[in-house]
Write a protein that binds this DNA or RNA. Structure first.
Lengths: 331, 331
DNA sequence: AGACTCGTGGAAAAGGTTTACCATTCAGCC
DNA sequence: GGCTGAATGGTAAACCTTTTCCACGAGTCT
């Protein structure tokens, strides 16, 4: 691997001049000389060593993403949004899956510091991360969080409460009176917000909020299936179920089907997120759309501002949109 | 951010000793001294700077992944497999989406070289990457590829031909005689293998291979929907459709449904990959399972061998498994 | 002629680490 | 008292870059 000195020798100039050419410095370089340098660079296939550069400049053009699990389409979509912006701006991205383990999170934070990442985007995960987040705070890292507002980092938020209200109002409008809810796990602020939205909308809509119709899952289809089965086997079966994400909604539909119920005939189901496959599901899933890609992109933009201009944008809020499809019908 | 000298001063030892402690060197360090150093480290929250270390040791403990698109569940699952192994071994992973653009690929290869990544895992993408791959070759990077065998890098392979044979034989067995095929795009070796497997199995099973029953899509549900519609609207409609991946199978099922056909009653559908949601689909999707997570994990293991022991493992082959579910039934 | 600008060279610092080499110290031992 | 071995210090090189400072030569302008 050739270095800057090799280039300088080959072009018969000094390393200072090579650097001037490479970094398009303000110092003028004679056109002829520049071309000689450029030729040497291309001949030697020279690239400045990013480690050395990073060490000196205290800038690595790398950021880290910490999420629970990339194989979850929700996070995959967010990561894609982050990457599209990062890539455009010349940043590389390292990815870290926590599976919601706290030690993992802390380990990654330290790892990213060792590697001198320019910033971190943090999404998902459970609340007792307070300790974790204070570690972040101490390290004075540039951090943007997605989907939580319980910490004072710049945040990209989704109107989960509003979205859930849309879902509930839709069901009420088409005549449902007993609505089951499959929520997310305790400790997740997203889960909490969606539950809150559900409760408020239910009571606001003139129904009674019944804790027996509310279950807490773990975001995956299996738990939707399990809890859906439980809801549907109860004495007083709901005529509609809202799941706090699409995967659990899929599980609930499977449960209904296995119990001989048709969707939306016997049971209406509403999801949340609008993951890419949900419109292809059968029946196509009525769901509350979250602009996941934009969430990621916005997070990266905020992080860039934080890094470069030091401008501190407190938060950005994204609205949801109800997508009414085939999984809901009149009660 | 404190450095090794700060620690040395605080512990009243030399930087040599600190380094001996940190790197568990063979040199003996007195227990008392070691503890003093450790105390200083924890007090100062010291971490060796990975950039400096990488620069000196020519080892960054970072590898790069180049794939078409992380929001595709197939790649997300593979990436997860890679990461699980990488993480266990202390490697960080940078992710790069190409969207199948060649310039992107080449840019990322150079980027990874600049950053002195210890290796690259390459999956997906189209064949005219020959140029791309020769760039890789020149750079003498440590590379492992997943899902292609047309280049002489260590490769993790899937028996696509065998898998497709399983799918065809299953359909023939339950009485189907006209089988449509929705393949992947030209240029993809995976698509080619799956098509080859289809053709061979069809003729091997005593049916005639009809090019009119074969369409080429782009892996996404939209193209499955489009081509499924086209197949089903043709004069001589197939009684079964095999899609080269699950997403396109979902699209085909949607097409069937919109044309008033029931699955599996009027049309049997088989997918490929077994992405996480396919068993929750309705009807649950009969598909050829690929151990995506293991593919990723194996690729990372091979890369580690390449990096450390310099052992060159030519390739690893994974078998598929037919998952018979609700989307196929007797003709 | 003297002053000035332009393009470039040369040298050095800084960033933080590992490692190699040698020197030194101290304790224990013959 | 002198030797040995263990533990540690001190120093320097190496990794590669950017940037700064100063100098210098050649040409240009007044």
């Amino acid at each position: 691997m050739s270095n800057i000195l090799d280039v300088a020798l080959k072009a018969r100039v000094s390393i200072a001049t090579v650097s001037r050419v490479v970094n398009k410095s303000l110092h003028k370089v004679n056109r002829e000389t520049r071309e000689r340098v450029l030729a040497a660079i291309s001949e030697l296939d020279y690239r400045p060593n990013a480690l050395a550069k990073g060490l000196l400049m205290k800038k690595t053009m790398t950021i880290g993403i910490i999420i629970p699990d990339i194989s979850n389409p929700y996070y995959a979509e967010i990561v894609r949004g982050i990457q599209d912006v990062a890539d455009r701006e010349g940043y590389a991205v390292t990815l870290h899956n926590t599976d919601n383990r706290q030690e993992g999170i802390i380990r990654y934070i330290y790892l990213l510091r060792e590697k001198a990442a320019d910033g971190i985007i943090f999404s998902g995960g459970i609340i007792n991360g307070q300790e974790t987040l204070s570690v972040l705070k101490e390290l004075r890292e540039k951090v943007v969080v997605i989907g939580r507002h319980d910490v004072d980092f710049p945040a990209v938020m989704v109107d989960n409460v509003g979205g859930m209200t849309q879902a509930v109002e839709h069901l009420i409008e088409i005549g449902h009176r007993r609505i089951g809810f499959i929520g997310g796990p305790d400790g997740s602020t997203t889960a909490l917000d969606r539950l809150t939205g559900f409760r408020e909308a239910v009571t606001g809509g003139g129904l009674t909020y019944s804790p027996r119709l509310v279950k807490k899952g773990t975001w995956n289809p299996e738990s939707g299936y399990l809890l859906g089965t439980r809801l549907l086997k109860a004495r007083c079966r709901p005529t509609a179920i809202i799941a706090a994400n699409d995967q659990m909604a899929f599980g609930a539909i499977k449960a209904a089907k296995e119990l001989g119920l048709t969707v939306p005939g016997d049971l209406a189901v509403v999801g949340f997120d609008n993951i890419p496959l949900s419109s292809y599901f059968n029946p196509s899933l009525t769901t509350v759309e979250i602009p996941m890609h934009d969430l990621g992109a916005a997070a990266m933009e905020m992080l860039l501002n934080l890094i470069s201009k030091e401008s501190f944008e407190k938060s950005r809020l994204f609205e949801t949109a109800l997508r009414i499809r085939g999984s809901t019908a009149k009660a």
